[in-house]
Amino acid sequence: MRIASRGIPLLLAALAIAYPWLVPNYYLVYAGALTVMYAAMATSWNLLGGFTGYVSLGHSAFFGLGAYGTGLLVTRLDVPWVVALVVSAVLVTAFAAGVGVAAVRVRGASFVIVSIALVSMMNLVVQGWRSLTGGSTGLQVPSPFPGLHRGQTHMVFFYLFLALLALALLVWWYVSRSRFGAGLRAIREDEDKAESLGVPTGAYKVTAFSLSALFVALAGGLYALWFGSLDPIFVFSILIGSYMVLMSLLGGVRHLFGPLLGALIVAPAGEYFLIALGETQIHLTATGLVLVLVVLFMPDGILARLTRRRAGPSIHDQSADQRLQEVTP
């Protein structure tokens, strides 16, 4: 068991690093980079969703802001791309903290609505502010690697996204082992009870919300540099946010590798449908349908199914009084 739990991730990591060299063409490198990007974003989403149970459909707001922030810093201020990426992500995280203070006051369905409203607002702002963002015609961002041809750029970004994914996984893992993480999980289980035990739930939620926005913003920034052209309708779409939710739920929100597994299934499937069916809206319908099915029949995800321990109660069936009779003379 231990060998399996240590060995399999190592093997997968080695496979991921070798992937661009194993596939026969650059299209598959591109599809791989896209998948890894989604995996990083879903893992990041899971810092909030998985620990606290707050389902945000609006994380594409941070993706879009990270993308536009990076793009604007590069095009308008001629900032080096690495600096633009980091500065933009930090600004988006600060913005998320501000939004979080207001957003995490409401729970359950209300929070979902607030998160959707956030994306719609950002979309309107970016489209409306033509002088700065180029509006609905989009923003062109010069490639940071003008010397490389398109396929080589895919390779570079594949590894950049892979590094981001590793970072997001590392942070999730670290939080899951910390007392902060225990507090976040307690919020998911019973927020008022956690508060009564001294957990500052508001501060915890805002921290998780911002942390979760950080890696999504970094992914957005990398996306801007990679694609070189930003379309507000796409980067601020509910679809990207829904993908993060679907991938996490499908793989399993309570597991480190759940969102990654979900991304490995959903992202290639999306690309496949795009090729097989052309530019139709069918993949949107399919995404919605799969999301409904997962929530209805497999809310704990694939990994929960696979790692479920032996059937029956996990402790022997012994009531408190039986136990009492043992300890009281």
């Binding site: 910390s178 507090g183 307690a186 035990l197 001294g198 500052p200």
Partner: peptide, 12 residues
Amino acid sequence: VAVRRTRLRELL
């Protein structure tokens, strides 16, 4: 889960 003081070191 119980938190006695909100100290960064304790939380991490």
